[in-house]
Amino acid sequence: MISIAILASDPVTGEGAASCLSRQRGLTVLPQQEHARADVVLMLTVDVTDETMLLMAAVAARSVNPGMGIVLVTGSMCEAQAVRAVGFGLRSVIWRQDAGFDGITKAIRGVADGCGVLPASIQGWLINHIGAVHRDVLAPMGLTPSGLEAREVEVVRLLAEGLDTTEIAQKLNYSERTIKNIISGMISRLGLRNRVHAVAFALRSGTL
């Protein structure tokens, strides 16, 4: 059963959405006092405003569900708002002119399953933002999106190939002490257990 919290700028629209969604199999609409435990928050607004962003921030702060995702139905949204909203749990955006309850229901089910659907323009904004963060913030500091430093990536890639400390040092023209320090620093900073765990972390994060 997917639990839904509905937040609408227009009470009549909110009541209509609640009536339609409550009749769908596998969906339950929560009363306001239980919104904090929602799997999916459905937000219905004419346009995204400063008040909308504040409400999203409040929703994220109050949620007791770590997997909570937001489905937003709106008429307009700017790039800066989209980037901020993702941090609050935004997973799907449906433009008002394209919104129908079948599409909203599909989006809710998708978000509950860990998926999301975003208009092409918003996808482009987020891709550009990620690229800018990597280029302007991470790369100058020698970091990668996974949190690994550039030389840590080199070392963990060779660990994944089965090389030992001596072989890695020879391959990268570092001393064995430097390689040991890189590995131990990476394990300590990221809270990893050992070298195998470091390789597994790099694989899960898409570094390898």
Rank of each mutant, 00 (worst) to 15 (best):
I4H: 07
A5N: 14
I6P: 08
I6N: 02
A8D: 08
S9C: 06
G14K: 03
A18W: 03
L21D: 01
R23W: 01
R25D: 15
G26Q: 09
G26S: 12
L27E: 04
T28R: 13
P31W: 03
P31M: 02
P31R: 10
Q32V: 10
Q32F: 07
Q33H: 13
E34V: 08
H35A: 11
R37P: 08
A38D: 05
V41N: 11
M43I: 13
T45D: 13
T45H: 04
D47G: 04
V48P: 11
T49R: 08
D50T: 14
D50N: 13
E51L: 12
T52C: 15
M53A: 02
L54P: 00
M56Q: 11
A61K: 15
A61Y: 01
V64Q: 13
M68T: 10
V71Q: 06
S76K: 05
S76F: 03
S76Y: 01
S76D: 15
Q81P: 10
V86R: 14
G87K: 01
L90S: 10
S92A: 09
I94V: 14
W95L: 14
R96G: 03
R96A: 15
Q97T: 07
Q97P: 00
A99N: 01
A99Q: 00
F101W: 13
T105E: 14
K106M: 12
K106E: 15
A107E: 07
G110F: 00
G110Y: 00
G110P: 02
V111C: 03
A112P: 04
A112D: 04
G114D: 02
C115I: 05
Q123L: 07
Q123E: 15
W125E: 07
W125R: 03
I127M: 12
I127Q: 13
N128K: 11
I130A: 14
A132N: 05
A132F: 10
H134T: 14
R135M: 10
V137E: 14
L138F: 09
L138Y: 12
A139M: 08
M141G: 00
T144G: 00
P145N: 02
G147V: 02
L148M: 06
E149Y: 05
A150E: 15
E152N: 02
V155H: 11
L158A: 08
L158E: 12
A160L: 04
G162C: 06
D164M: 02
T165G: 03
I168N: 02
L172F: 01
S175P: 05
T178F: 12
I179C: 03
I179E: 08
S184M: 07
M186K: 01
S188P: 00
L190M: 13
L190E: 08
G191A: 03
G191K: 02
L192H: 06
R193I: 09
R193K: 14
N194G: 07
N194I: 02
N194L: 04
R195P: 00
V196L: 04
H197R: 09
A198G: 06
V199G: 00
V199P: 00
A200N: 13
A200H: 11
A200G: 01
A200S: 11
F201D: 05
A202I: 01
A202N: 05
L203S: 06
L203I: 15
G206K: 05
T207Q: 11
T207L: 07
L208F: 06
